[in-house]
Design a protein around this nucleic acid. Structure first.
Length: 425
RNA sequence: GGCGGGUUGCCCGAGUGGUCAAAGGGAGCAGACUGUAAAUCUGCCGGCUCAGCCUACGAAGGUUCGAACCCUUCACCCGCCA
């Protein structure tokens, strides 16, 4: 898709609620109108995978690409080494060089999945490339000289840290590195726009200042609002507390799909706008459907479908939908044929068994990653199920007839956590 | 460098010799109600070979019949002074 009006990307993002702060929007439109604009978004490799928090950035890059612009996805091999002081009240634990390197490699692959890199339409870079060889003296002279400490101290991220636990010189310097990235990309690639979450605003504007001082030119910044949820919980914390990762090894596509399927009614509309590329009419229709017939959860279903496809692909989507239908369909598991059941269960965490079966409490603990105390408690509280039947006996052992098709036991804790035990002989 | 304050379970935070696995809140989990939602109510929320035992209150050592609580040393954090 190529839109005839390259400035319309601003209106699109605005309609979707993806603009929180911006530098001069009219000036930005002017730049966008003048031709394809190169812009960048950076992620630090603090973990071996991107998470949903990074998803907005990737989607914004895609929007720009759709409107004919040229996105750069930056993996922060250098900045991740230092640690962003923002959004925390204490110092980060430094990652080792091996960890950063490994994370950069993995995150780079994920970034490449979201941005079309063919024929120079997009670019993937690592800021370590221009930071590693820099000497301290050059850095202090060429970059540090342009940063008034009084201005840095006034930045929200720094001030918050001064009020809580203090901040090391290392993290204090983070802003300089990020600004230097922008300057570097401005020089190398003619990058004129940096996008980021609103918590990055201070860092974004620091980059603009640097470019103005060094190059005497105006660059732009655009931020999106922090994604929140209606209940005030941290967005993207999957049930169970962990982050919602994009890597299927860290968050299974099934769990990923279920997360979106369970989104609060009040969040569906905003999330459809933020996270999908559906057109306005379709989103508005889903928004009214959510108001009129909330129990159908049409919005949640579409959201879950769209995002699972975006991140994990259509094949995974089909599998997790089959699994969800089997596990939440309300029908008896015994009635599912072996093939369907096996396919559905392939999405759930599983335990393989060869010999005699241990107690169900042991299996619950292992399959659902609980402590045995927790597993015991779940049974005691009536929150543990075998093949959709509530367990009541803490010392129960699976009976021969419990094995579905002679192969499977379906264990469940509460409504949503499912694990499968598979027996091989 | 000096003086003072602090370090408690996932987070915040009470606890100053036995009744402490440690108040209260938040987060989380389960049950009921529902729509695999929200709100609400109820229960749970260190581990285990679970009516008992083990491990835990920054670290190590000590006093004591007994220590999260007292003493010593060390580490880190926060103030004020230099």
């Amino acid at each position: 898709m190529s839109n005839p009006d390259p400035t319309a990307v601003v209106d699109e993002l605005s309609w979707r609620g993806l603009i929180a702060h911006s530098t001069d929007l009219d000036a930005l439109r002017g730049v966008l109108a003048a031709g394809p604009v190169t812009l960048y978004y950076g992620c630090d490799p603090t973990a071996p995978s991107l998470h949903v928090g990074n998803l907005v950035g990737l989607i914004v890059l895609r929007w720009f690409q759709r409107f004919g612009h040229r996105p750069i996805a930056l993996a922060g091999g250098a900045t991740g080494f230092i640690g962003d002081p923002g959004g925390r009240n204490s110092e980060r634990t430094l990652l080792t060089a091996e960890e950063v390197e490994r994370n950069v490699e993995r995150i780079g692959r994920q970034l490449a999945q979201f941005v079309d890199l063919t024929d120079g339409r997009g670019l993937l870079v690592n800021n370590m490339d221009w930071t590693a060889g820099l000497s301290v003296i050059d850095f202090l002279r060429d970059i540090g000289k342009h940063f008034p400490v009084n201005v840095m101290l006034a930045k929200e991220t720094v001030r918050a840290r001064l009020d809580s636990g203090g901040i090391s010189y290392t993290e204090f310097s983070y802003m300089l590195l990020q600004s230097m990235d922008y300057l570097e990309l401005f020089r190398r690639e003619g990058c004129r726009l940096q996008v980021g979450g609103s918590d990055q605003w201070g860092n974004l504007t620091a980059g603009l200042d640097l470019i103005r001082r060094v190059e005497g030119e105006t660059a732009h910044a655009l931020s999106w609002p922090l994604v929140t949820s209606a209940t005030g919980e941290k967005f993207g914390k999957s049930t169970g507390g962990g982050s919602l990762w994009l890597d299927p090894a860290l968050t299974s596509p099934y769990a990923f799909y279920q997360y979106w399927l369970n989104v609060d009614d009040r969040d569906v509309g905003p999330y459809l706008r933020f996270f999908t590329f559906l057109d306005h009419a379709e989103i508005e229709a889903l928004e009214s459907a959510t108001v009129e017939r909330p129990q159908a959860r049409a919005g949640q279903r579409t959201l879950a479908e769209q995002l699972t496809t975006l991140v994990h692909g259509p094949d995974e989507l089909a599998r997790v939908q089959a699994a969800s239908a089997a596990l939440f369909g309300g029908g008896a598991l015994e009635e599912l044929d072996e093939q369907t059941l096996a396919a559905a269960l392939s999405e759930a965490p599983s335990v393989s068994l060869t010999g005699e079966a241990p107690s169900l409490v042991d299996l619950l603990a292992e399959g659902l990653a609980l402590s045995k105390s927790d597993a015991r408690r779940a049974v005691r509280e009536g929150g543990a199920y075998l093949n959709n039947n509530r367990l009541t006996d803490e010392s129960a052992v699976p009976a021969e007839t419990d094995w579905l098709h002679g192969r499977f036991l379906v264990l469940r804790r509460g409504k949503r956590s499912v694990a499968v035990v598979e027996r091989t002989r």
